[in-house]
Design a protein around this nucleic acid. Structure first.
Lengths: 234, 234
DNA sequence: GAGTGGTCTAGACCACAAA
DNA sequence: TTGTGGTCTAGACCACTCC
């Protein structure tokens, strides 16, 4: 199953799994570096590399003389999030529906936004709010990471919503741009070609491995993104 | 500035300075690891740590057998950061200029995006990259919070750059949308009316008090926003 | 084949905070 | 004072890729 992996990545993922599973709670001390060195039979620099990465990711906090501890999640800063579009629309008081346009399965191809996936599920659909098109979605799901997605009926539940409920993610990346609607998109969304649209691409990882990529496109007057944050010090 | 600095940080900053200043252009090969080892008289692991950090930050690209190269920057910046547009453009290797269109001072008015400010500085200008318009900026600065802004020459330094260097901030909020360019904006940026543009509004606070508001508008094909993040618990 | 970066080892000294 | 993490050294082997 697991392909070639560096030792520091393996240590990092082992610890990350313990934290995300809840086995290690916020505030718990994780093993000392020298204990991990003994456990993995490796050099201290290798353990330190893994812990440094976890610290930079905000999962642990390291204190001299005391050890390393599972970080208390930040309470204050509402930053970016992976939203469930259905919930957003429902919260607005509109009826929500996901229209599945295409569903397929294929091998990874050169130029795919997911880099290292084997077989992939491809999904295209349109989100509707109050009976009107709200946004378009093109998605890839790694079947190596999420084999159970093969058996899901995405006419009943939007893929984003299903993934949020069934697959944990540990890291995500957004790319946001403004694009004009091309002819096909304009027809699907019921807007004029060239209309300014907000395009959101999102890559999602679980323990360092790609889970899904999605490109969502919304007419500019129907969707805003908001982020509130504090300066980064790390 | 800080005196205590680790060697790998110093190496990293030296290289970063060479890139941002334009001394090393995108595509240029930077010194091999063994050359940097000789230059700094340190171990290869220390050089490698610095280069790994630069690679993760997207400033360089490393290729086996070939060496490390100054990355061709995507024009993108993080959603969770307050970027200095001048630095972003300089990092891309283009000449940067801020064109001040209007500057004024007035009392707070109803409907202003800054709510509780008294006297405010109003600034409008255009960011230029390589001699071409890159983005438009409309800004308000609270003179109650930043009285020294009265005496700054914003034809010499863009207001965003000056503020980042002189006024600390403790909280910021972004609102991102896609909008079509209106006639005036299209003229200022040299684009067709209706062109899809990325519009970024940012409110910045210091210790709970509003410092500045800015609305920046970029043609959609010239600017991306990127955010990388991990889940928030609850 | 040759030379690069990627990773790792088995030490070392230091700064700092906890005991 | 003690033990932890932070940084660094001087090697090593490997994988990849350019020649």
């Amino acid at each position: 199953m697991s392909v070639a992996q560096t030792l520091d990545q393996r240590i990092r993922e082992d610890i990350e799994r313990n934290i995300r599973s809840g086995a290690w709670r916020p505030g718990d001390r994780i093993p000392f570096e020298h204990e991990l060195v003994a456990e993995y039979g490796c050099a201290r620099a290798t353990v330190s590399k893994a812990l440094t990465a976890l610290s930079r990711a905000g999962l642990i906090e390291r204190r001299r003389k005391a050890g390393s501890f599972v970080a208390h999640p930040h309470v204050q800063s509402a930053v970016l999030d992976v939203p469930d579009i259905g919930s957003v629309i429902a919260a607005r008081g509109d009826a929500y529906r996901f229209e599945l346009l295409k569903r397929g399965e294929r091998k990874h191809a050169a130029g795919d936004p997911l880099e290292a996936a084997g077989a992939m599920l491809t999904i295209e659909g349109v989100h509707h709010a109050a009976g009107e098109p709200f946004g378009h979605e093109q998605r890839l799901i790694s079947l190596a990471m999420v084999p159970q997605a093969r058996d899901v009926d995405f006419t009943a539940e939007a893929p984003g919503s299903w993934l949020l409920g069934h697959v944990p993610w540990s890291e995500a990346r957004h790319r946001i741009a403004a694009v004009p609607a091309d002819a096909r998109l304009a027809r699907l969304l019921g807007i004029a070609p060239g209309t300014a649209c907000l395009q959101l691409e999102r890559w999602t990882w679980q323990l360092g491995k790609e889970v899904t990529w999605v490109r969502q496109t919304f007419p500019g007057d129907r969707y805003d993104l908001v982020a509130q944050f504090t300066p980064q010090s790390r």
